[in-house]
Design a protein around this nucleic acid. Sequence first.
RNA 1: GCCCGGAUGGUGGAAUGGUAGACACGAAGGACUUAAAAUCCUUUGGCCUCACGGCUGUGCGGGUUCAAGUCCCGCUUCGGGUACCA
Length: 921
Amino acid sequence: MNFMEYNFRAIEQKWQTYWLENKTYKTDIRNDKPKFYVLDMFPYPSGAGLHVGHPLGYIASDIYSRFKRQQGFNVLHPMGYDAFGLPAEQYAIQTGQHPAVTTARNIARYREQLDKIGFCYDWDREIRTSEPDYYKWTQWAFIQMFNHYFDTTLQKAQPIASLVSHFETKGTEGIRAHCSEELSFTADEWKAYTEKEQQEVLLNYRIAYLADLKVNWCPALGTVLANDEVSEGLSVRGGHPVEQKVMRQWSLRVSAYANRLVSGLDTLEWTESLKETQKNWIGRSEGAEMKFFLKDSDVEIDIFTTRADTIYGVTFMVLAPESELVKVCTTAAQTEEVEAYLDWTKKRTERERQADRKVTGVFSGSYAINPVSGTEIPIWIADYVLAGYGTGAIMAVPAHDSRDYAFARHFNLPIIPLIEGCDVSEESFDAKEGILMNSGFLNGLTVKEAIQKTKEYLVEKAIGRVKVNFRLRDAIFSRQRYWGEPFPVFYKEGMPYMLDETKLPLVLPEVDKYLPTEKGEPPLGRAANWKTEEGYPLELSTMPGFAGSSAYYLRYMDPGNDKELVSRTANEYWRSVDLYIGGTEHATGHLIYSRFWNKFLFDLGLVCEEEPFRKLINQGMIQGRSNFVYRIKNSNTFVSLNLKDQYETTPIHVDVNIVHNDQLDLEQFRNWNPEYRTAEFILEDGKYICGWAVEKMSKSMYNVVNPDDIVERYGADTLRLYEMFLGPLEQSKPWDTNGIDGVHRFLKRLWSLFYRDGKSMLNDEKPTADELKILHKTIKKITTDIENFSYNTSVSAFMICVNELYSLKCNKKAILEPLVALLAPFAPHIAEELYHLLGNSGTVCDASFPKHNEEYLVESVINYPVSFNGKVRFTMSLPAALDKAEVERIALADENTQRFLNGAAIKKVIVVPGKIINIVC
RNA sequence: GCCCGGAUGGUGGAAUGGUAGACACGAAGGACUUAAAAUCCUUUGGCCUCACGGCUGUGCGGGUUCAAGUCCCGCUUCGGGUACCA
């Protein structure tokens, strides 16, 4: 097939068909090649389809995959769908349409859009989390978590059976297991427990466990949510209010892995900011746990503090309203007041509590004794102390903690400063610096020394211990929804049991409606025969969104395996993801859960790498760029941007797809909306220029750009190059179609080096030194740019290269052939066409990636800028071979130098060979 | 509040401490064309100058250096994350 001009539609269609028919992107284990695993965060297939923001990361990973393949790696680059989720279910509730139907339709649409962009995915490995043969392994992993506990000494998961045998011989003595609550019983007591009691005890240790928890309940969605699915008291999906509620729910003991989740970060090539986000979320803090005693009683109140050094400044204690000690500490006289306060706090939603930071609290009536100073201090109850963190009780040091300070001021409690020279008359002194005073044996020490000394003292006197606390909470794993993985769980006497693995997958049943039952049970309560063969009822909740995405990268290694999640052979070959590209929004959700899940499987010896994602790149968000027209008040007349100030106008969003380079297509505008059929315009220079603003990309702003439309108009290669040209990959930027003509022009110009006026321009002439220099400079630049994910500068390097070859009228195969191989990762369609035009067969995907030759890059002459006191005045060309002294001598002798010196004395001359000459005078 | 990023022409952006503004868009002028599109050529940070050329310039104020967009200190401001976490 010959093309008169760059006919991208025909070219792209031709090669997409070829790649499909020849299974160009099929991947298998190849022991003769090193592997490389490139992964995109798989999408949730929403009804809206892809907009131009979605492919940004996919294009970046595609370029890298193709690059690695051309360098001789066996590249695994799969794609699939995170197909369970709320939107399909909400849609089902409204329409009665089964979520599987909408999901399948959306996937088909996604696939069609993805195919048009020419990605090198191995679609034979596609997975969908909502397919039973996939979620079988999600259910299977859950069973393993149920059957294991976390040994805190070994810092790894162990079979629950070994815990049971320990209980049988020694009870809880010497148990080092991560648990919800510290238990204590003997072997005999254990044996005396009923089956039900034993099961209840074991739930306290299991990695997947059922417990009564204070959860985030979202009434509008009718389900509980994990902490990362709630932001500022509202659900992340939908923005509905969330309240706190105690419910019996499945949870994953993610917190057991907190230590390893923090330390593992050091082994990863992630950005510092992402590691920092995870560290903050996990929230490791080193401190001390300390025992206070209730006055005249042996009731013990444990507190956690990171400022053990401030012990002499404790002037009161505070309990969280939910603390079990509240009842114990409340005196008869205070009961009424305390109960009124508890009632009030219970009614407050999380959102109200966060929005309204008024100081509130109530005195319990009791006093505690400071274990170090022996001072008597009042015990208060206040909701600024959280039940879920530390021990739910604090020692308050108003002089050195701003929250305690506000509280002390409000209730007129004493404030004792402990740092020499600090001023606490207006605010607390929170900094961890200074010299201690008013602090008994700690006086004269620095804060750091005092913290250490206090910790030693606590241990010595047995009134406390060194403790590391984590902010990370266990992940709530139940959702009261339909469209998710069913739990492989049945109930016997109210206790949960796992289905036998041979019964997996437990397939999601049909229901008549996707709503809770009349009794308020989740939708699965509507399913007929939702019980085991033996008649035991099955779990009614389903798993959350992150369940299916937690181990999907493993499944891609061996997607068809019906015996195992992944075979040992496949896992040992592909190991872990070498490059993972996706958005930062998953920093505290998916990326924590996946790491946890993988570490658990690693502990069981089922996967060979402890960390799933070695290198991770976050592509920036593509924001919308909206266009506006300006309607003159009370008329149907629109005035162009630069004339609008002469009138009283209202800005109106206009569909960006009928605006080109900020110029409105008047005809399309009139047809866009019947209201504008009769619109009149006041133009500038015969054009209507629109205003613009950067906003979120959304339908209501009419700024959604569909990649299909871009492909239709310019071709996939232009879309790919343009998305990369837009700016640095990791930076957020607005989508702005202005400028796309530039990269399209580049491809046309490249084409014209090969083919012009209907005939081939190619020749076999020997390249000149200049041409070789252009080529090799480009090879070098592109190679380092790809390795640094600096794709925007790659595209400009290609433009420079083609512009230079164009002005040299270079149509030599010897230059153009390597150039095509170099461009192939970025613009595979045109590269494939040109590769064949050059007489090659097979696919450009296997053309080896060119290597630059430094010999061609040697400069013989250098254009030295000569500056005086750092200010450049003129340049001079000198042979590159000259050494420092010679350059200096020639430069000083130059008449220009004498002119700019103008008689001044030279103090110093700096010569950086190959760079610059600077004369100080 | 705390943590992490940014701030460079009309616009997107380039620049291992070494000629700021590469590359591209837009704009202006020109060639070709009946015209448009496409293509090609020229100019394009600001100010002064007929010109040669000069001055100025990377959010603000200091500093280090022969030399700072780049390093250090102090601010302003815009994003993102996170929060009564003791």
